Simulated assay, not measured.
Amino acid sequence: MSGTEHVEQRLRRLLRDNRFRPGERVGSERALAEQLRVSRSVLRRALERLEAEHLVRRAMGQSGGVFADDGKIQRHLNTVQGVPDMVRRQGLSTETRVLRLELAQPFPDERRALEIDETAPVIRTVRVRYAGNATLSLDTSVLPARRFPGLLSENLDGSLYALLTEHYGLQIDRAEETVEATTADARQAEMLEIPQGSGLLEIYRVTYDADNWAAEYAHDFFRADRTRMHMQRVGTNWKRSRL
């Protein structure tokens, strides 16, 4: 057994014996190398093998390290965050494919959510998001066109929230979301490259700015086999205890 294989086996035991939950931080590369008494180069080769099996993932940066993994992207319900930022923070590459970008009249549900009249045009974009080499979500975002002039000529293959903040001064304050379980129809299955009938998480979202103005109405479908929802719940005395 090579040195890399030996370290790989020790890492497997470490993950199993400590019962790390998916998304839980195992430690930094430096700390793990010291704990296992191996060089970081050997440790990295062993981690690469475990990453290929979706047993761990590595993230760079101050809050990075080695995390237990099962191949799913953790979506924090307490935070308003764009998909690219969410995916990158979990150590994966991300890509966006724009399927549609149009100026249109709002549908009734879009008009109600954005609190606009039926003659007010909207910008509607439909995009497929990727995490790593596989699809993650099919996203539809609808925005009031008068609030975001020139948006149709912008590049929307990155973070929409970052673009709206940098180019239009949007200050996102909060979002209201509804999450339901559903299955992929023929169109969704084709766009997400999954079998028809696969599990999806259907999300409706209205995003508000600091003035309580509805800036975006979104209707997204996240692959259930690639997504985990996470939220923090607090007791009734939470605010009082922090005053």
Score class of each variant (00 low, 15 high):
residue 148 F to N: 05
residue 23 G to F: 02
residue 109 D to S: 06
residue 211 D to Y: 14
residue 110 E to S: 09
residue 77 L to I: 03
residue 124 R to G: 02
residue 155 N to G: 01
residue 216 E to P: 00
residue 74 Q to F: 13
residue 9 Q to K: 13
residue 13 R to Q: 15
residue 149 P to Q: 07
residue 33 A to S: 15
residue 106 P to A: 05
residue 219 H to V: 13
residue 152 L to T: 10
residue 224 A to D: 12
residue 52 A to D: 14
residue 150 G to S: 01
residue 105 Q to V: 06
residue 135 T to I: 08
residue 236 T to I: 15
residue 170 L to V: 15
residue 240 R to A: 14
residue 80 V to L: 12
residue 235 G to Q: 09
residue 242 R to N: 12
residue 88 R to T: 08
residue 76 H to P: 00
residue 117 D to L: 06
residue 113 A to E: 03
residue 53 E to V: 05
residue 32 L to T: 01
residue 82 G to Y: 04
residue 114 L to F: 11
residue 80 V to S: 00
residue 173 D to W: 12
residue 231 M to N: 09
residue 187 R to G: 04
residue 46 A to Y: 02
residue 53 E to Q: 15
residue 62 Q to D: 07
residue 31 A to K: 08
residue 216 E to S: 09
residue 93 S to Y: 04
residue 200 L to R: 04
residue 65 G to S: 04
residue 220 D to L: 10
residue 206 V to C: 09
residue 189 A to T: 11
residue 56 V to T: 11
residue 149 P to W: 10
residue 224 A to S: 15
residue 99 L to D: 10
residue 184 A to E: 11
residue 158 G to P: 00
residue 192 L to T: 03
residue 7 V to W: 00
residue 69 D to W: 07
residue 212 N to E: 15
residue 171 Q to K: 06
residue 229 M to K: 09
residue 159 S to H: 12
residue 32 L to R: 00
residue 67 F to S: 01
residue 52 A to I: 03
residue 185 D to L: 14
residue 231 M to T: 14
residue 169 G to N: 12
residue 220 D to Q: 13
residue 62 Q to H: 14
residue 123 I to T: 09
residue 39 S to P: 01
residue 147 R to G: 10
residue 80 V to I: 09
residue 50 L to R: 02
residue 108 P to R: 07
residue 129 R to Q: 10
residue 12 R to W: 03
residue 2 S to Q: 11
residue 11 L to A: 01
residue 219 H to W: 10
residue 48 E to H: 03
residue 47 L to N: 01
residue 225 D to E: 13
residue 98 V to F: 08
residue 217 Y to N: 03
residue 33 A to N: 05
residue 48 E to D: 13
residue 158 G to T: 03
residue 6 H to E: 12
residue 219 H to C: 02
residue 41 S to F: 02
residue 191 M to E: 08
residue 97 R to G: 05
residue 176 E to A: 13
residue 200 L to S: 03
residue 122 V to C: 07
residue 12 R to G: 01
residue 54 H to S: 15
residue 39 S to K: 07
residue 149 P to M: 09
residue 189 A to P: 06
residue 95 E to L: 08
residue 173 D to A: 14
residue 107 F to Q: 06
residue 124 R to Y: 08
residue 19 R to C: 03
residue 186 A to M: 15
residue 66 V to P: 04
residue 58 R to G: 02
residue 243 L to V: 07
residue 55 L to G: 01
residue 222 F to S: 00
residue 206 V to W: 06
residue 220 D to R: 11
residue 214 A to N: 11
residue 79 T to S: 06
residue 192 L to G: 00
residue 209 D to E: 07
residue 45 R to E: 13
residue 92 L to I: 05
residue 156 L to G: 01
residue 152 L to N: 07
residue 152 L to R: 12
residue 150 G to E: 06
residue 204 Y to D: 11
residue 66 V to S: 02
residue 232 Q to D: 12
residue 214 A to K: 08
residue 83 V to F: 11
residue 86 M to E: 08
residue 110 E to L: 07
residue 220 D to Y: 11
residue 106 P to D: 08
residue 223 R to P: 03
